[in-house]
Amino acid sequence: MYSLPIVAEAMLNGLLTGAVYALIALGLTLVYGVLHIINFAHGAFLTCAMFAVWLANTFLGLDPYLAILPLTLIFFAIGYAVQRFVIGPASHGDDGNILLITLGLSIVIENALLAGFRSDTRSLMTDYSFNVFEVGPLLISQARLFGFLGAVVVTGLLWLLLAATDTGKAIRAVAKEKLGARLVGINVSHVFAVTFGIGCATLAIAACLLMPTFYVNPRVGGAFVLVAFTIVVLGGMGSITGALIGGLFIGVVESLCGLFLGESLGQIGIFIIFILVLLFRPTGLFGARA
């Protein structure tokens, strides 16, 4: 019914999309692992970053790939400030409150963007948006391949940051034992804010890698964030490698479901996996904590 090259191409496309999903999930899983909160504003920050890429390209003529460095820094600063001055003080240290604050933030950001940019969908026109590599019978979009490679590199860097630097050590210490970390002189609210900043910075990178082939409107983040939740739960909350593998897996599942069940049902496979994992293995496939 479906010839092999079509299925192979669908799987390949799924892997390419999945890598960017993984990158988006990375920030979410990191924030969960350290702050133990589910950041509902993650999708809204992604939308912000995508608009930033679009603005930089349209008004400054900045290529999305060149925008990676400045936007990463800017979004790190935004994330740091939001955690330090909004989420931290407003939540009084209660996890349930943080959930609601991030929900409130996402509503504010999404609708502020809607007020500012209206609901039009915008996309970038770069001269390489439609370039492809030909590998045998398969066509691979260049921009999406770059996205894949970028996501893998960032995952590696993040892993290195956590494993080999002092900042990483402090983050891991706070994730394991908040009180103990404070006793040995780690500034916990600073580490929280740094973690949140890193989460936002990965979103800026994801936005730069997405924009050459994707579009942006004020609601676009919502579609990604539910997928990212699934990946985080599937990979185990707080696990970096889990997020990467989970992201690739979910990308393939979505692509194959879209091929076999039709475009409108493409995402249903994701949510069914999500529910099954939550019900039967809430620690995820790679998660350590209960």
Binding site: H92, I101, G104, I107, V108, E110, N111, L114, A115, S119
Partner: peptide, 25 residues
């Protein structure tokens, strides 16, 4: 107050939610 700007009422909801959690649990 803001006229016909789309989304402004919803943005206000979000802000109210944050303020309530922060100052009036």
């Amino acid at each position: 107050l803001a006229g016909r700007v789309p989304g402004i009422d919803l943005a206000a909801y979000g802000a109210v939610l944050i303020l309530v959690v922060a100052f009036a649990p």
